[in-house]
Design a protein around this nucleic acid. Structure first.
Lengths: 138, 138
DNA sequence: ACTTGTGTCTGTACCAACTACAGAGCGTAA
DNA sequence: TTACGCTCTGTAGTTGGTACAGACACAAGT
């Protein structure tokens, strides 16, 4: 039971292991002040509380949804105090717009790539329709 | 006529202007050896030949299709000599797989974001369903 | 000839968002 | 006690450029 208790103070590697992030990411988030400085043992080893864990989980989730570190800072109220629901929504909508733009850009790349690959047969010759097309005059 | 001749030696800004890239990008590509060192005037100003222009256009096009700089290096035969059509095709297929994976990832983000935004009404309150969900236990 | 304005040269610093590593110190089990 | 493994710190590397400072170069105007 105690093994998985969310209340025990965790060392850095334990926290990273639980939340599935890299060890160094935690120190990085501390450095850029997304995470507060944690408690320490007498000899200086970091000890993370349950509150720390909750906050880090929030950050990791927001990052996994593609929010930038600056966005996360805003969501956490680090920039201008705790954001209103309207502000959060605006941030999320803007971010969603970004995501959709990136999808559209990638789709266009895929389409263009398909066009340019037509004729590149994969024959074992040095002449290649793909590179030829990239070299062509505008 | 001479103004737009593709044979005239171009200065850096002229080349950048023609191909629509940033001035500094050209020097960057020279530094990482995608572009060869160009000719110089007596006083050291770079002069780009038509051949340089063709090569840079190739690089910019490949980059705009999402190929990495290392990919471009391979396509140009800088790594292991001029690639065969089969090698080019393999590179392009792998790259296309990458693009599609990125599209899939972004679509999933968009979907998850949509789910998590449900209930975030944008009302002018500090309580927000979106942040609440990000804070929730696993 | 001189000045002024613009272009170019070099080296280096900066961006995001981590990740990795070196060298030192700490903790614990045998 | 000694060995192993974890943690500490600071710093450098990653990708693909972009930006800037300070020193020259070049062309046009006076």
């Amino acid at each position: 039971m105690a093994i998985t208790s969310p209340r025990a103070a965790l060392k850095r590697a334990e926290l990273a292991g639980r939340l599935g992030c890299n060890l160094e990411t935690i120190r990085y988030y501390e450095r850029i002040e997304l995470l507060p400085e944690p408690a320490r043992t007498a000899s200086g080893h970091r000890l993370y509380s349950n509150e720390d864990q909750v906050r880090l989980r929030f950050i990791l989730r927001a990052r996994s949804l593609g929010f930038s570190v600056e966005d996360v800072r805003s969501l956490l109220g680090i920039n201008d105090g705790r954001p209103s629901c309207a502000e959060v929504r605006a941030l999320a909508e803007a971010h969603r717009g970004d995501i959709r733009k990136r999808i559209a850009d990638l789709k266009q790349m895929d389409r263009r790539l398909g066009e340019i690959m037509a004729g590149c047969t994969g024959a074992e010759t040095p002449d290649c329709a793909l590179t030829d097309k990239l070299f062509e005059d505008s």
